[in-house]
Design a protein around this nucleic acid. Structure first.
Length: 433
DNA sequence: GATGATGATTCGCG
DNA sequence: CGCGAATCATCATC
């Protein structure tokens, strides 16, 4: 017992020495008169100063020697474990309760967002979500791709910065953790520091660093959001369709003037051809119909232009079809009295014309549509012979496609000249079957 | 900057 | 829900 009490005294002294070495500052020895008057405090400070002043190499050596002696003492391990236990049961047990915290929901949200935006996670294809969405909304024409690449470049930049910073933080965290662990291990020889405590300390460090990481993730998210909103704003701006797209839409419109209501399938086909969305096709046709109806005279020229175009393609088609028929079949398919019934796979005239462009037609389709194309050609030829500019004249694409109340002619009243593919009873079933 | 063209949006109707 | 009609917002041209 006597030996033990002596040892505790020594231990306290060595501990003090240890602190003074590491901290560079000696702690005052515990005095009993804390709440005393100023004289007592002055006395304390005087003692400390005296201690500091009297630290010599010799006293340090003495302390080291004491430390060594203590470390080698046979009772040291037992006492050390007792101290550890006491320490464990007091202060640290309070903190222990907060240790196994669940994953932070905010951090999870940030992680998910970064993953969705393609900042974290796999490199390829990431971050194009907004670009793709905007592309779908705005048609994804060629000029958009410039902005897409710009968006992607900026996103890549953010991604790079994020990863660099993250790496830096991780490195710093590891370095600091290693440093602290080494320090604690070193101190554990003189202080009651259990491995569990070191583990806790590491946990605390990691939490600190993860909060820094969260800030990084937060600002990265913000940057991505800003970039994205700017990109979407730029995309939202109205821009005219490409010339080619307008051409395609106009050709369809004027070749179906008697019933310019493309079916869902036709809309999809047109959307694909024009690199725009189906709703844009719908918008275009809606606008076109209303504007055409409002001012037919203005659109006459345009109508004739496309009629001529159709004529040329129809001529090619008919020539090919006739040739095809001569070689394949003595009878003309679809040579019914009206010549305008929709065929199951006829699609619409325009679509077939498109496929015929460049002399790459499909014989069977041409054969099926030959009658309509012949009709179309005949009308166009008649038209080009003598077109009068007058409103309501005898022109090919004259207002008589419209009925009395301003709407497009009823499906039950067949068109006199236009769109031979449309037959009686056909309700804008261009490609429907 | 004025003006017309054009794509998109909104609202009411059937 | 698709359409017509009115309207808005932006583009393109002069």
């Amino acid at each position: 017992m006597d030996e033990q009490s002596r040892m505790l005294q020594t231990l306290a002294g060595v501990n003090l020495a240890g602190h003074s070495v590491q901290g560079g500052m000696a702690l005052p020895p515990p005095h009993g008169h804390e709440g005393a008057d100023g004289d007592g405090r002055k006395q304390d400070i005087g003692d400390i100063l005296h201690q500091i002043m009297t630290i010599t190499d010799q006293s340090l050596d003495e302390a080291q020697a004491k430390k060594h002696a203590l470390n080698c003492h046979r009772m040291k391990p037992a006492l050390f474990s007792v101290l550890c236990e006491i320490k464990e049961k007091t202060g640290l047990s309070i903190r222990g309760a907060q240790e196994e915290d669940p994953p932070d929901p905010q951090l999870m949200r940030l992680d998910n967002m970064l993953l969705a935006e393609g900042v974290s996670g796999p490199e390829k294809g990431g971050g194009s979500a907004a670009a793709a969405a905007a592309a779908a909304a705005s048609g994804g024409s060629s000029d958009n791709s410039i902005e897409h690449s710009d968006y992607r470049a900026k996103l890549t930049q953010i991604r790079q910065i994020y990863h660099t910073e993250l790496e830096k933080y991780e490195q710093a965290c590891n370095e600091f953790t290693t440093h602290v662990m080494n320090l604690l291990r070193e101190q554990s020889r003189t202080r009651p520091i259990s491995p569990k405590e070191i583990e806790r300390m590491v946990g605390i460090i990691h939490r600190k660093f993860s909060s820094i990481q969260m800030q990084l993730k937060q600002s990265t998210c913000e940057a991505v959001m800003i970039l994205r909103s700017r990109f979407l704003d730029a995309m939202r701006k109205r821009r005219n369709f490409s010339k080619q797209a307008t051409e395609i839409l106009n050709e369809y419109f004027y070749s179906h003037l008697s019933n310019p209501y493309p079916s869902e399938e036709a809309k999809e086909e047109l959307a694909k051809k024009c690199s725009i969305t189906v709703s844009q096709v719908s918008n275009w046709f809606g606008n076109k119909r209303i504007r055409y109806k409002k001012n037919i005279g203005k659109f006459q020229e345009e109508a004739n232009l496309y009629a001529a175009k159709t004529a040329v393609t129809a001529a090619h088609a008919v020539a090919a079809a006739v040739q095809n028929n001569q070689t394949n079949s003595p009878t003309t398919p679809n040579s019914g009295s009206s010549g305008s019934f929709n065929l199951p796979n006829s699609g619409d005239m325009f679509m077939n014309m498109q496929s015929l462009n460049g002399d790459s037609y499909q014989g069977s389709q041409v054969g099926a549509n030959v009658q309509s194309q012949v009709d179309s050609l005949r009308h166009v030829i008649n038209q080009t012979g003598g077109y009068s500019d007058g409103l309501g004249g005898n022109s090919l694409y004259s207002p008589h496609n419209l009925n009395a109340n301003g709407g497009w002619q009823d499906a039950t009243t067949p068109s006199s000249v236009t769109s031979p593919t449309e037959g009686p009873g056909s309700v804008h079933s261009d490609t429907s079957n």
